[in-house]
């Protein structure tokens, strides 16, 4: 248990440092009618930060929070937005991606929102960002201890397809009764020889809680394990926040004789040649399909490296 608290405290500076920034810029430029810095009032941001701290102290455990109605619809990332709004300060640098790309409509929309309500610097570069809000992907470029990754979560409850009643699943998590999940995994192997989850693949965090990592492809799961950055998960509609503190064990559920594995890429990126990153399939016409990196910033970096001959 000491282990976890130490990590929570170590992660806390990330949270508090950003808060200082927020307090300083209370009189920052904002559009009329006068909105708070990052839209939410200070009381709400405090409530969110408290939920975050609790989540960091209990890795993988879903912490209820008083989610507010935001100017973007439920399902569009209000949870991630509230988490980011709780953390962001004037000296932060924000990157927002959706499906790995900075240019998808939803990422653009969210980035605009923060730009308007905070005036904070935004970027498309993973390396330059201090906060990265993401939907459905983990960036390919490894993150550092100075960064926070905020995931948008549609469904925080990993057991929801097996038991829709949250009043029940709450108890199951509390008692560590994961029989529902284990029989499902058994069935998958018995029927298909594989576990039938390709995204939002359930994981066990800190050898304790079973957690839903959000609909990232299972390809991305290994990145969560012992990640140096703080990982925060926000579900606005379901009103839950959870966290993986830096350097925490995250194990994808599997059997020892049917271990979790990621199939190697069968293709290379058309633009940069990478065989290591997650690729989007693009259908050009009836005959041709090509593949490109889903992570646009990574792809750009690869192309530039090739250009300058840098390894």
């Amino acid at each position: 248990m000491c282990d976890v608290t130490d990590r929570a405290i170590a992660a806390a500076p990330n949270v508090f440092r950003l808060h200082e920034g927020a307090a300083l810029s209370a009189e920052h430029r904002s559009p009329t009618p006068a909105y708070s810095f990052a839209y939410l009032d200070e009381g709400t941001k405090r409530m969110i930060r408290r939920a975050i701290l609790k989540a960091v102290a209990i890795p993988g455990c879903q912490v209820p929070f008083g989610s507010r109605e935001m100017p973007l619809a439920y399902g569009w990332g209000t949870g991630g937005i509230q988490v980011t709004a709780g953390l962001i300060g004037s000296d932060d640098c924000l990157k927002v991606i959706d499906q790995g790309s900075d240019d998808t409509t939803n990422a653009v929309n969210i980035r605009e929102f923060f730009s308007r309500t905070t005036g904070v610097q935004t970027t498309e570069s993973t390396r330059k960002a201090s906060i990265i809000q993401t939907r459905h992907r983990i960036p390919e470029i490894p993150l550092t201890e100075h960064q926070v990754l905020v995931y948008q979560v549609p469904q925080p409850e990993p057991l929801y397809k097996l038991e829709p009643r949250r009043s029940e699943t709450q108890k199951l998590h509390g008692y560590r009764e994961y029989g529902l999940m284990s029989v499902k995994l058994y069935e998958d192997i018995a029927r298909w020889g594989h576990i039938d989850e390709s995204y939002d693949y359930p994981v066990c965090v800190n050898d304790h809680y079973v957690m839903a990592p959000s609909p990232i492809p299972k390809f991305d799961n290994p990145k969560m394990h012992q990640m140096p950055a703080l990982q925060l998960f926000g579900a606005g509609r379901e009103k839950r926040i959870y966290a993986i503190p830096p350097y925490t064990n995250v194990e994808s559920l599997a059997f020892s004789d049917h271990p979790f594995s990621v199939s190697p890429n069968e293709h290379a990126c058309e633009l940069c040649g990478s065989t290591e990153s997650f690729l989007d399939e693009v259908i050009l016409d009836k005959q041709r399909t090509l593949w490109t990196c889903s992570d646009t910033d990574y792809c750009k970096e690869q192309r530039e490296a090739k250009h300058t001959g840098v390894e």
Binding site: W76, Q99, N106, Y199, P215, P217, F278, L279, E281, S294
Partner: peptide, 13 residues
Amino acid sequence: LPHYVTFESELEL
């Protein structure tokens, strides 16, 4: 909203 990454994972499976 775009779901092409999750869909791609399903296609692979």
